[in-house]
Design a protein around this nucleic acid. Sequence first.
DNA 1: TTAATGTCTTTTATCGTGAAAAAACAGTTT
DNA 2: AAACTGTTTTTTCACGATAAAAGACATTAA
Lengths: 300, 300
Amino acid sequence: MSKSNNVYKDAYNRCLRLLDETRSLPSEPELGALLGVSRTTVRSILTRMEETGLIAWNKRAKTVLRDPHPDDFFPEEETDTLAEIIERSFMRRLLAGGAEAGMQINELELAREIGVGTTSVREFLIRFSRFGLIEKRRNSHWVLKGFTRAFALELTEIREMFELRSAAAFAALPQDSAVWADLDRLEAEHRLLASEIATRFNEFSELDERFHRLIHRASRNRFIVDFYDVIAMIFHYHYQWNKAQERERNEVAVGEHLAYIEALKSRDLGKVDAACRKHLKSARQTLLTSIPENRPSQKP
Amino acid sequence: MSKSNNVYKDAYNRCLRLLDETRSLPSEPELGALLGVSRTTVRSILTRMEETGLIAWNKRAKTVLRDPHPDDFFPEEETDTLAEIIERSFMRRLLAGGAEAGMQINELELAREIGVGTTSVREFLIRFSRFGLIEKRRNSHWVLKGFTRAFALELTEIREMFELRSAAAFAALPQDSAVWADLDRLEAEHRLLASEIATRFNEFSELDERFHRLIHRASRNRFIVDFYDVIAMIFHYHYQWNKAQERERNEVAVGEHLAYIEALKSRDLGKVDAACRKHLKSARQTLLTSIPENRPSQKP
DNA sequence: TTAATGTCTTTTATCGTGAAAAAACAGTTT
DNA sequence: AAACTGTTTTTTCACGATAAAAGACATTAA
């Protein structure tokens, strides 16, 4: 088995959902654009839909014959990218097992354990290395630097530097910029979430990311924008393992976001700075308290 | 041919240079540490040195029999890493040919042109992507973002943010820190270079990098330290293609460095800030003037 | 008994290969 | 002619295989 057809399967599933809404499908190029795949994949999808009696397909005519049944869908786990699979496995090991700083990472072992080729693992590790958690020894193994207090502090130091600058840039954006509408929309979502926080508190992390990415984009600096990938990755996994007081924490954060949004809308740089600082401080605090005390530690 | 033995060849050449200085070689582990390779490679080296009559080797005794001859050395080009070869080829194309922003990069074509496997090219591109000059389209080609004015501005914006902070951290380091000795040594090298600038101006770029890396290291932040790789890479190639007024530019820069060093040694934060700003401003200017005017440009 | 050498095993680096997916080309339909 | 469908070519992605290099183990010398 050399390459999984997850692109096809995922697009197929998404296409099934389209069937509910319409009586006939659009042209092949249009469908491709809609699903974000090539025509080749679109045609594979249509072929199967015809075979399973979901549609009648003759050239331009693609008529929906019946509603999709639950078992028309490919299983969720078959739609994941190899990269996603590797990342999940790797992070699980990193967070669960005794991932001591200084530990060495073995490509071959990792590949065998996950059941994939070494090339994919290598490529993953190279991509992952930009997060600053691992480091390569030339012609030899990778070294785990560990998710330590030091890491969290270094990460948040940069985050604060970048976000303060981005927030200031944001507030200075002209009134007719499209971001203000985006901000209004995000504000509404925040208010809604705040009012239903008791039941929907776990939806905060996704909103959080969208909000901060919007702000960072105002910097118009690719390095700042890209750096948010590091933060997002860390917080993504952080949310998964640190469930203590999740509701309370998120409730506070939503409040801080709303104050932050208010400050941005006031376009008063002093207020923006203060609101941003306040929120970042509590975000850092949350992250830090979730990290166990300093392990034996490693040499610099 | 699946893997070149450049590690062996490079270590062999370096080992030849050791023969000049001594009458007998140290133990295998010691040699390995000295050359930065494993014992396996050390033994290959020793084996060949015995075969070519350079040494007599019997267990612990490794006596030098004759001085190495120029053609005992492996050719320079055989000692390069594949990654270096690919990077050079890639950068040559990028700087020489019409590398318009938006252009797409073809892994297969690149691999064929350089004469290497696709895997190596892929890995190179993934590593290279952190420089912000290329971007991947999922399941498809890479896109060249171009070495534009915008890129240079974004890069220098971060550089200035990071270096100002690092410089302040540097100045705040305790008197007994080892960095002050490093700084003194660099100062001496600068003074020497300044006095012989007419003939040695092209040695500045290497000194420049060592100086700025020393400062960045004071931040004790891996993201700041790592970011210097981006700057170093850009300046490395920049020095190669922009030879206009090289002597003058470098002379000015050496002067700025000396003022900067003076400021650091004074430990007066105001002076440090001023000297750092001044130097970074002229560095940015140099970089910017070397970039041709805005090409047609791309959408954000 | 410590530190080296000799030998064997494991891992990394790189290629060629083949299926999945994209992209290009050619022919049709409206 | 513009936009679509049918077909072919090219490229990306991922694997297994193999030489180079590292590392582990066993043995021997000091």
